[in-house]
Structures are given as C-alpha cells and as structure tokens.
Amino acid sequence: MMRILAFCCERGPGEAIDLAGEKRMRYPADLTLIQVPCAGRVDVAHLLKAFREGADAVVLVGCLEGNCHHIYGNIEGRKKVDRAKQILDEVGLGGQRLEMFHVASNQPFRIAELAAEMASRVERLGPNPLAVKE
C-alpha cells in the first residue's frame, strides 16, 4: 500500500476535495489529505519530516497563482517545495517524490489527477527506502 501525504490549503483545494466527494470522483486511497490554512503555512521541515515518517510521496496543494485567498500564500508554498526538492535530491531520496499542485475550488477532477500522477511516480521510483527498512 503506497503512502502519499498531501498538505492541502483549506480554502481553494479544500473546497475542491469536498466537491470531489460530492461528485463521487474516485481517487486512490493512498492519498491522505491534511488541511492547512494556506499552502504558505507548510514549511520545509514538515515536508522532510513526512518522508522520515515513511511517506512514499508528498504533495503540497495550493490555489492557482494569482488566486490565493491569502494574497500569495501559494507562492510562498512553491518556494518551500523548491527548497525541499533541492534537499531531497542532495539527500538521495529524489526531489521527484515531492510536488506542488495548483487546484482551484471548482477543479475537483484535479485531486484524482494529482493522486494518479504521484502514484505513477511512486511506482517508478519505488517505495520510500526508509519505510522498507522498518
């Protein structure tokens, strides 16, 4: 069973998740969503700690750029993801396991898309080596 952790802004993407539920849009259960006030709330430490806790892939879901309910939280989030990717590459886990997606409140299909995209990446990259060791 894959483990994909998503930090999800509760304004735009949070709405899209509920809409996906209302419209019965199936997505793999490996994706677990944690709601945060804004994509800018998540810092690099949270993203890296998730991998140490055994996540195979981590996703930060923010609103579209220019459409952030907190003015530019999503741009802040993008910067943290870029920094974390750099570290993951240096560490050897691979920055591919971390990605930022932009989802507007009326794009429920994007949740399934991002889940599928990350699931395919995990298949390609294999499970998180830390998780395997335990």
Binding site: V44, E65, G66, I71, Y72, I75, K79, K80, D82, R83
Partner: peptide, 14 residues
C-alpha cells in the same frame, strides 16, 4: 535564501 525572497508579483501584491 531563495525561499525568503519575495517575487515581483508578491511585492506588487503586498
């Protein structure tokens, strides 16, 4: 420190 630099858009918005 790139992750603390405000992009042009952020400066305009702020």
């Amino acid at each position: 420190r790139k992750e603390a630099v405000l992009t042009e858009e952020q400066k305009r918005l702020k």
